[in-house]
């Protein structure tokens, strides 16, 4: 598995071409997800997006998720690249690529990786809009104002404890 957390842009095809060939020998295919910055939010345009992360923990979480994907699905290997810093609409944010002998495992593992990444890897998005800046709060439990401990992804069965 390979995990990259970086400020600079990436070229998905070049990243895949550069992946160690011996790790994916025997692959019958690959599935790639590429996430980009939307130019709209709930009620406004987005001029730019700032992504903050927790260096060290981010890489560790992505490696944990990648290892879990390899355990759950019959895949050969995976690649995750995630950017941080200031991004513009249409810019690449994230890519997940999975190689496998047969397609089903690659589709499933790719979906698993991007879904779990969204709920456990410590990245935070801040939208820069014409009306000002706002932190994105994507957690459905948070949106609903739930404080009793809604659970996130399979790997992160933490709850949002109300502390006082």
């Amino acid at each position: 598995m390979l995990v990259k957390v970086q400020q600079e842009d990436f070229d998905p095809m070049a990243e895949m071409a550069a992946f160690p060939a011996d790790a994916i020998a025997g692959a019958g295919g690959s599935v790639t997800f590429i996430g980009t910055v939307r130019d709209y939010s709930e009620a406004t345009d987005i001029l730019a997006m700032e992504i903050e992360h927790y260096p060290g923990m981010t890489e560790r979480e992505l490696e944990l998720i990648s290892a879990e994907a390899a355990r759950r699905y019959d895949i050969l290997d995976s690649l995750v690249v995630h950017r941080y810093g200031r991004l513009a609409p249409q810019d690449n944010i994230v890519m997940v690529a999975v190689w496998s002998r047969h397609r089903a495992a690659a589709f499933d593992a790719c979906r698993f990786l991007i879904d779990v990444l969204k709920t456990s890897a410590p990245f935070w998005k801040k939208e820069i809009t014409p009306e000002g800046v706002r932190w994105v709060t994507d957690c459905p439990g948070c949106r609903a104002g739930s404080r009793e401990g809604h659970t996130h992804a399979p790997l992160v069965s933490h709850s949002h404890t109300l502390l006082k």
């Binding site: 996430g35 992504i51 992360h53 927790y54 060290g56 923990m57 560790r60 979480e61 995630h82 944010i93 994230v94 991007i114 990444l117 969204k118 709920t119 456990s120 890897a121 410590p122 990245f123 935070w124 998005k125 932190w135 994105v136 709060t137 994507d138 957690c139 948070c142 996130h152 992160v156 933490h158 709850s159 949002h160 404890t161 502390l163």
Partner: peptide, 28 residues
């Protein structure tokens, strides 16, 4: 998080630990 791992607030902290607090994550 304690030492780069998600933890519940009831976890015990040890001398030298790195403890982090943050909002729900919104990457991807």
């Amino acid at each position: 998080a304690v030492n780069l791992r998600h933890v519940p607030f009831s976890d015990v902290v040890r001398d030298g630990d790195e403890v982090a607090f943050f909002p729900p994550v919104t990457g991807g």
